[in-house]
Design a protein around this nucleic acid. Structure first.
Length: 157
DNA sequence: GCCAACGTTGGC
DNA sequence: GCCAACGTTGGC
């Protein structure tokens, strides 16, 4: 069993929000079409890893909750669907290009943690800030705990 | 709504 | 294989 790792995953709440995840319980993290983000899901994530849910493209952008990786990676079905905006004609079922994992809801923060709060708390070294536009980034364990603290929460087992 | 950052595409 | 053109992300 590998050591649990921590991640941050962005979503525009207009497209899919923490409240949607709370309602659904579990969701396929569909639609990632960036190779680096895909590689993280395909090669780096493990069942049981924890991730922050980050609301992007809103004011203010912020971390709004916690979730857990709950499946092994598998091909994103939308890449095969001609009607989907995520259809990829260069991909095939025999050699799929895009992989994803499912995540499940753990908790929504009562106090979401904005970028400003993160910076003020000395977390400006987070990959979130270093890796402009990358929608999935790695989070150090210490950073993860610090963010929970900022949200007024204790780490879960 | 602007636009900087930056990944992707495609002509050569 | 270079790189200009183009498209997208996402903070501001």
């Amino acid at each position: 069993m590998s050591k649990r790792q921590y991640w941050l995953m962005k979503s525009e709440p207009e497209a899919y929000s923490i409240d949607d995840l709370k309602r659904d319980g579990q969701i396929r993290w569909s639609g990632v079409r960036n190779y680096e983000a895909r590689n993280i899901m395909r090669d780096k994530m493990n069942v049981g890893d924890r991730a922050f849910f980050y609301h992007s493209n809103v004011k203010p952008p912020c971390i709004v909750g916690e979730m857990e990786v709950c499946t092994e990676p598998y091909p994103d079905p939308l890449q095969f669907d001609p009607d989907s905006k995520y259809f990829d004609e260069k991909s095939s079922e025999s050699d799929p290009r895009w992989h994803l994992v499912d995540v499940k809801f753990i908790r929504k923060f009562e106090n979401s943690v904005t970028r400003d709060i993160l910076k003020e708390a000395g977390l400006s070294e987070m990959q979130l800030f270093k890796r402009n536009r990358l929608s999935i980034t790695h989070v150090e364990e210490e950073e993860f705990i610090k963010v929970l603290e900022l949200a007024g929460l204790e780490p879960l087992d």
